[in-house]
Amino acid sequence: MNKQNTLTLVETLLIDYANGTLPLALEVLVETHISMNPVSARSIRMLLQLGGALLENSEPISLSEGSFEKLMAEIDSGFDKDREINNNVSNDNKLLPLPLRNYAQDIDSPKSWKRIGIGLSEQAINFGDDFGSTKLYKISPGCSVPSHSHDGNEVTLVLSGGFTDEYGTYGPGDISIQETGAVHKPVADEDGECIVLAVNEGPIVLTGPVGRLLNMLIK
């Protein structure tokens, strides 16, 4: 997809992030992206401030009778269920941006990766819901992902290194969006390994001759 359309879709992603309607996989992708991209970080900041201003400007509507007292009673009872959620950040994955660290398995351990081609490995990430599929891909320098199309939109974020496909060149923090049916063949830059996070709404369909064989194997 060309750069202008991609930019448009990224803007829509950022708005959906701010209003909280993204599935968790995309929410984490956007958080990772804004931790790497100051322009998008400023957009999110503006959108949250705008939300704050709209909240401040809202005409007050009373809550039901005794709401404040009920709230204080709950506070005084001292039970804080949110404290029980484990919010420690993993010590593994120091090389990954913070927002992604707890979700991925240790990227330094070979055991976390499954080899799926020459110079190409993947790691599935489970977000505990039934939304599409999310994977990390590791592509060796100069190697490529076999030409494939997408059954469902795919959003890819470069975490390290870079790749080039039919539509452009992408570096750390860049997002590439493939719409349903789009075909592309990403090739990792020669100067280093490339790791990307890919969130797919539907299964990937491999289109090259080798790919078609792989499709049969994957099934």
């Binding site: 701010a18 909280g20 939300g51 201003a53 909240l55």
Partner: peptide
């Protein structure tokens, strides 16, 4: 107001995802 909006945003997400989100968002 921005801080409170952000908390409310998260609370609304929790509510919408109640059944489909066993993992907390660490971010």
């Amino acid at each position: 107001s921005t801080w409170i909006f952000t908390i409310a945003r998260n609370k609304r997400i929790d509510k919408l995802r109640k059944d489909s989100r066993p993992l907390p968002n660490f971010n």
